[in-house]
Design a protein around this nucleic acid. Structure first.
Lengths: 182, 182
DNA sequence: TAAACCATGTAACATGTTACATGATTTT
DNA sequence: AAAATCATGTAACATGTTACATGGTTTA
């Protein structure tokens, strides 16, 4: 149950319309919690019905008209409650690792090409994160808020570094396998 | 769409009943693709209806009676097709990173305790993986199949290592924050 | 003025979670 | 004989994905 809380966080950072939220879920927030515009509109409707957010008053809200939302006190309270509560780590699901296990049984055809493609994607993501770090967190002292944001970015950088290294290692292993096994 | 393929892989490795599969999804396979028994029974029903697996013939299969499944040729073909096909990386969703971002807005109360708890859980998981590595992949030469399995285990070890280090780093950062910020 | 894009949505479906139900077997 | 556990399920719901719909605004 994290999507509503992701939206509350985003709206507290800055009141936004559905489309603006969608854009933000393609970048910053989306780096660790992705959502499509369909999910966002559905959830905005629910949050409004529950009285956690409200549409900012405009002239006449018509279909196809921009509609911005802001968080109400009840919404902030709910987010604070959720943030303070203990949560168990969710089980991971990784299709790529599952695929290698399947490949061990039914053969590795096609896998190497996809490992290369994934490696390329992870390298790009890593470069993007490092660029953000250079731009937004230059060496020097940060405010406490910055330190939290930086911490999150660091997780992203280290995770992409892990995947990049692991994929390089995996490709090296495949290169050593007898040809008919690939 | 990976659950059916996780089940096909598991059944190819060894024909099993629903409960046996559930147990295996709590261990080995579950390390990178978890599933509850409800999901498994539902999916077994679908896979049987589609002719990808079949129940092993027994005397009289009654409710509450063990029922084992094996993969049919069509099932193996489907798994091979899925394994060879290119797949885009799924978007990640990490509640813990989302929580830190929320904490930057609504305050960090309760977060440190949970970071410690998570650190403990990741350390245990790491120890478990390393024990498996010692037991199942002693130094020396592996068969090509072993190498694939080892590669997957390595990803698990490196991932848990990343989380352990990152959480230690995060806790150190929190320790430096002014008290009222915690 | 046609095409592309902006902005908000609906519908149908797949997947995952939580709570509960049922009969058989084993343990106390 | 009661309680616990084994084994297979059902039901209801929450969440996520894919395809499509609709009207307004900008660009070629």
């Amino acid at each position: 149950m994290s999507l509503p809380h992701a939206i509350l966080t985003a709206l507290l950072e800055k009141p936004s319309s559905g489309l603006e939220l969608t854009r933000r879920f393609d970048r910053s927030i989306g780096y660790f919690w992705s959502a499509t515009h369909q999910q966002i509109y559905r959830e905005l409707g629910k949050l409004e019905a529950e009285g956690l957010i409200r549409a900012l008053p405009t002239e006449q809200p018509v279909r196809g008209q921009k509609k911005s939302y802001e968080v109400l006190p009840a919404g902030r309270a709910e987010l604070a409650r959720w943030t303070a509560a203990a949560q168990d780590p969710r089980p991971h699901r990784d299709p790529l690792l599952l695929r290698l296990r399947a490949a061990a049984v039914v053969g590795t055809e096609g896998v190497v090409d996809d490992l290369r493609r994934h490696l390329d994607l992870h390298r790009r993501q890593l470069a993007e994160y490092e660029e953000i770090e250079r731009r937004d967190f230059p060496p020097g002292k940060d405010s406490p808020q910055d330190r939290l944001q930086h911490l999150v970015l660091r997780a992203g950088i280290d995770l992409e570094t892990f995947w990049t290294r692991w994929l390089e290692h995996a490709l090296a292993e495949f290169a050593e396998l007898p040809t008919e096994q690939r």
